[in-house]
Structures are given as C-alpha cells and as structure tokens.
C-alpha cells in the first residue's frame, strides 16, 4: 500500500533536548569524531614526513633495492619480503584456522569447544614478543631440519632451493612463527560464519545419508566462503604489519630472491624498527615513507576484508 494522498502528512515529532543532553551528545559525537581525526592525522603526519624523501627518490623509492646511510633509498626488496613472509604465514595459518573453526563448530562437544575458544583467545592475547623469543630460541633450531629436508628433496622447486648452508633467519621461519599470531583472528571469523550455517540444509544433507565431512563440504564451507576469504585478508593485514617476530628472526637483506628457506629476508615494519633509533636527516623521511606505505597497504587490505565479509551471505552482521 502506498501512502495516503497529500491531505495527511505525518507530524514531525520534535522534542527539545535538555541542555545536559545537548552537551552529552556533543561529548559523544566529539569523541567519535576524534577517532576519525586521529586516523587522518596518522596519514597526514606520515605523508608530510615522507614527502621530502618521495621528492628525492620518486618512484624508484618503491622499485629499487638499496638502503644506505644518507640515501638513495629503495624499499622494493623490503616490500617483496614483507609480502612473502605474510603469504607464507597465511598459507600455514589459513588451513589450520579453518580446521580449528570446524573442530569448534562441527566436531567438539560444547565443553571442548568452549575450552578451545578460550585457548585461542589466549593465543591472540599473547604479545608478539613472546612469540618472537620462543620462535627464535625454541622453534628455529627445530625447524631448520625441516628446511634442510625440504631443500634436499624439493630443492628443484625454486622457492625451496637454497644456496649455501644457512637455513636460519629465513622468511620461512618468520612466516611459521607469525602464522601462529594471525591464526586466532582468522579462526574467530571462520568460527562465527560456520556457526551460522543454515540448519535446514545441514539436516537435509545428513538425512540424505551424508557423512559429516560431506556436509561440511557441501553446506558449511560454501556458506562460509565469504567469511573465510575476509578472515584471510584480515590475517594477511596483521601479518604484513608484524614487527617484532621479523626483527628477531630474520637477518635483513635488501636483495630479492625466491629462496624462502635461505637466511635473509626483511619487512617494512622491521626496517623501521631497526633503523628509527639512529636515523637522522633524510633517513628519517625515508622511514616515514616506508611507514606510510605500510599504513596504506594495511588500511587497504583491511577495508577489502571488511567489505568481503559484510557482503557475503554468511557474514552479514559479523563483527570483524
């Protein structure tokens, strides 16, 4: 039914808020706006810090592979290794997170699921420093044999090839450690979307004689696909910005190579962390430019992630 013809118009319901209420509203929206201002300021300050360097080196800042005391600077290799480490950790974290989320929503009893959820929240709460020190001292010596084995047997694949014998401080090891850190966030989003699987379809599949895995494959996973992709993007964003683990584990390099098992990698965040203390003059501007790049990349990745999750059938209303 459409609205009645113009003779009747809804009354405007106005109520004059009290003075206290107006002040209160003002404080609330002021605070809310302040968060927007902060984000804008981050971008602006980094941009103004970055401009001198970007003027000096231009586009070659993003494409060249060099970093000297007083310039010229180029973060091409650093960007490459940042993305490489993030992709390695995502490659490990994504399947693990999906199966954790399946374990919680589809396999575990309510009590086990609750315990698992708490443990994963705890994993998310641990500082990256703890992962870093553990990864460096405990895990690295135990992963090196795996690297050796991979390079011996699968060395014909370029990424598993290794020149020399140094398997420590590699992008692979840093990626494994940071995969532990992005696992919780991917798991929690996957869990959320899996738990919303349409019960009618699940029951229909079971009633046709489907096994649990067939139900997961035909109903749960397709339904949760948007959430999984969005969660993976979100994890990728976290991995791109991970600092301490990379600083502690990899030995920095400004050269590009496909050999992820070999010593030597880098990341934008690690570059900044390692150099900001002693940087002077134009070097500070170069670090600002690197920081701006990282800021924009993570912002973009996060935006895409939210968009994917909220547009998907399963993800509507899921809090990231």
């Amino acid at each position: 039914m459409t609205a009645a013809p113009t003779s009747v118009e809804p009354r405007l319901l106005l109520s004059a808020p009290t003075r206290g209420d107006r002040i209160f509203r003002g404080i609330l929206s002021g605070s809310a706006s302040l968060t927007m201002v902060i984000l804008a300021l981050i971008g602006l300050y980094l941009l103004s810090g970055a401009l001198p360097e970007l003027r000096a080196d231009g586009l070659s800042f993003f494409t060249s592979f060099r970093w000297t005391e007083l310039g010229p600077f180029g973060i091409g290799a650093v960007l490459y290794w940042t993305v490489t480490i993030a992709l390695i950790s995502l490659t490990i974290a994504l399947p693990v997170s999906i199966s954790l989320a399946l374990a919680i929503t589809q396999y575990a009893s309510a009590r086990v699921a609750a315990v698992l959820t708490i443990l994963i929240d705890l994993l998310a709460a641990l500082p990256s420093l703890i992962f870093g020190i553990w990864g460096l001292i405990f895990l690295q010596p135990r992963l090196v044999p795996v690297s050796e084995w991979l390079s011996q047997h699968l060395g014909f694949i370029p990424i598993f090839n290794v020149h020399g014998t140094n398997f420590k401080s590699s992008a692979f090891i840093a990626g494994v450690v940071s995969s532990l850190m992005i696992m919780p966030i991917i798991t929690s989003i996957a869990r959320e979307v899996f738990s919303r699987s349409p019960q009618g379809e699940v029951e229909a599949a079971y009633a046709l004689g489907a096994t649990r895995w067939s139900v997961i494959k035909t109903v749960v996973l397709p339904f949760g696909r948007g959430g999984i992709v969005g969660g993976a993007m979100l994890g990728l964003g976290r991995a791109l910005g991970e600092t301490i683990v990379v600083v502690l584990i990899v030995s920095p390099t400004f050269l590009i190579s496909p050999r992820i098992l070999e010593s030597g990698a880098n990341s934008v965040a690690a570059l900044i962390a390692l150099r900001i203390g002693e940087a002077h003059g134009i070097a500070v501007n170069a670090l600002m430019a690197a920081g701006l790049t990282l800021f924009l990349v993570t912002l973009l990745v996060n935006m895409i992630a939210s968009a994917i999750v909220s547009r998907s059938r399963s993800g509507a209303g899921v809090e990231l």
Partner: peptide, 24 residues
Amino acid sequence: VFQKPNPFPAMTIAQNVLAGPKLN
C-alpha cells in the same frame, strides 16, 4: 522430509534431486 522445505539454494532443481547420490 522436514517441516520447512530445505532445498540446497546453490544447486539447480536437477542437482538438488541428484544431491543424495552425489553426497554418497
């Protein structure tokens, strides 16, 4: 057969009919 009709929305009519053999 359930109270609420629950065909698989992502499948066609024919695929829905064949879902049982496929799942098994």
